[in-house]
Design a binder for these strands. Structure first.
Length: 427
RNA sequence: GGGGAGGUGGCUGAGUGGCCGAAAGCGCCCGCCUGCUAAGCGGGUGACGGGGCUUAACCUCGUCCGAGGGUUCGAAUCCCUCCCUUCCCGCCA
């Protein structure tokens, strides 16, 4: 959410920011509502000031038994009804204004390149070389099914399409990946691990800007009006909602492994075959709360922390700076990390790292205070490190052997009791 | 699920109808004192919003004592509903 003061002072900037993202912002309506709100607010407040003064006088008069009391009582009753009318008007304006403010997108940072689609994103760097094979590399779903790592059919039987099931070495491998990611974050990169609830309140979803604009993307649990988390970003960012943090505590860096649920209303197709784009998947997520001036440097560090996972695994990847049109509603600046899947012959997005400025902090009211100063909004950031299924897929495809087995990267063997290779299949 | 207690500022905690945006303490800020540190002494210190003001400082008005309603001329204080915390009992992984 943007500050109303900011929109008053820079309406063109807000309009332009929305345009860059390919969206629109109801700036004129907001400014008009804001004017009306302030005018009715001023009237209400001066009536209240009058009521407050007169009430005090009423007390004095009635104690001294003055006859004027009855006259004053009538006057106050009339005042009060006028106040109630104004108050209702004010509340209506506030509600309308709030609704509109929540749908104004965060303008991109000035260094974000302009663009309208995926093609306009800018590759910042790549790591490792495209893997080479002396045979035709297979896609992960073929490898995994032959090795018995997946059971897609039974997953569908149990939960419906777009759910997956890992078994045997597959389940263990994903668990090993999860442990590696958590150990890197907590042991090497200085994140404190949290294990949050997987259901959150509506307020939390609004705080991270998953609502009100994207309600159809989330699974809604009617009992208690809660939502299955689409990412750990939601519960973890909201950890400090409505709080004023001591500046000495910043930066706060958290890592969380959670399942994530997305309703992903699109139809299945070529890009969704295999262990990808599921209603439920798991992810290791990094979340930071920082001082405004550290925000962008912390974003760079966050991306590096996520990259470290792929480097440790020896998987080729690229980092792209998202163009204005391809970054979400709430982001200020965003990088994607795409790992290469040789069997599919394309890159898969395994991480999305974003800085939000104070956009989320305003919505969730997360502030900090430095030694006796005024409270200020923190800046929030987050990114995956990494999404499990796609990292799993890239690993399978990168480390496949001609015989159809999977070599286990050095870094994972300790989590798999020394296992060096999965398979190859015997039939 | 049943019953009791409770939710007050950055924190702890007093306050049962006007003298309360709210005692006291902690923390923080400024000053004094002090070989240094600690202690001590004095003063200051809530949030949000509107208006005034060239900005800041400042002035002023309003709102806020879990949330929302109600009673009253007037509510932190009385009533209702909801949320949350905690204790006892029950049930259960």
């Amino acid at each position: 959410m943007l500050a109303i003061q900011f929109i008053r002072d820079h309406p063109d900037l807000v309009r332009e920011g929305a345009r860059l993202k390919g969206e629109t912002a109801p700036v004129d309506e907001i400014l008009e509502l804001d004017r009306q709100l302030r005018s009715v607010l001023a009237e209400e407040e001066s009536l209240r000031a009058e009521l407050n003064l007169s009430s005090a006088r009423f007390g004095e008069l009635s104690r001294s038994g003055d006859q004027a009391v009855e006259e004053l009582r009538l006057k106050l009753a009339e005042l009060k009804s006028r106040i109630q009318t104004k108050q209702q008007e004010r509340k209506d304006f506030e509600e309308q204004l709030q609704r509109l403010l929540l749908v104004v997108p965060n303008p991109p940072h000035e260094l974000v390149p302009y663009g309208q689609s995926d093609d306009d994103n800018v590759v910042i760097r790549t790591w490792g070389a495209l893997p080479e094979f002396d045979f035709q590399p297979k896609p992960h779903f073929e490898l995994g099914e032959r090795l018995g790592l997946f059971d897609f059919e039974r997953a569908v039987k149990v939960a419906g399409s777009r759910f997956a099931l890992l078994k045997g070495a597959g389940a263990r491998l994903e668990r090993a990946l999860t442990w590696l990611m958590l150990d890197l974050a907590t042991g090497e990169h200085g994140y404190e691990e949290v294990s949050p609830p997987y259901l959150v309140s509506r307020e939390c979803m609004v705080g991270t800007a998953n609502l009100p604009k994207f309600e159809e993307d989330a699974f809604h649990v009617l009992e208690g009006d809660r939502f299955l988390i689409p990412t750990a970003e939601v519960p973890v960012t909201n950890l400090y909602r409505e709080e004023i943090l001591d500046a000495d505590r910043l930066p706060i860096r958290h890592v969380a492994w959670t399942p994530c649920w997305r309703s992903e209303a699109g139809a299945p197709g070529k890009d969704t075959r295999g262990y990808i784009r599921l209603h439920q998947f798991s992810k290791v997520e990094l979340v930071k709360f920082v001082r405004p001036e550290d925000s962008l440097a912390e974003l760079e560090a966050l991306v590096r922390d996520a990259e470290a996972v792929l480097q440790t695994l020896g998987i080729h990847y690229r980092v792209r700076l998202m163009c204005s049109g391809d970054m979400g509603f709430a982001q200020w600046k965003k990088y994607d990390i795409d790992a290469f899947a040789p069997g599919l012959g394309r890159y898969l997005e395994v991480s999305s790292c974003s800085a939000f400025g104070d956009f989320q902090a305003r919505r969730a009211n997360i502030r900090f205070r430095s030694h006796g100063g005024k409270p200020e909004f923190v800046h929030t950031l987050n990114g995956s490190a990494l999404a499990l299924p796609r990292t799993f897929d890239c690993l399978l495809e990168t480390y496949q052997t001609k015989a159809g087995g999977i070599r286990v990267p050095e870094a994972l063997r300790g989590y798999l009791r020394g296992l060096e290779e999965i398979g190859p299949p015997t039939h």
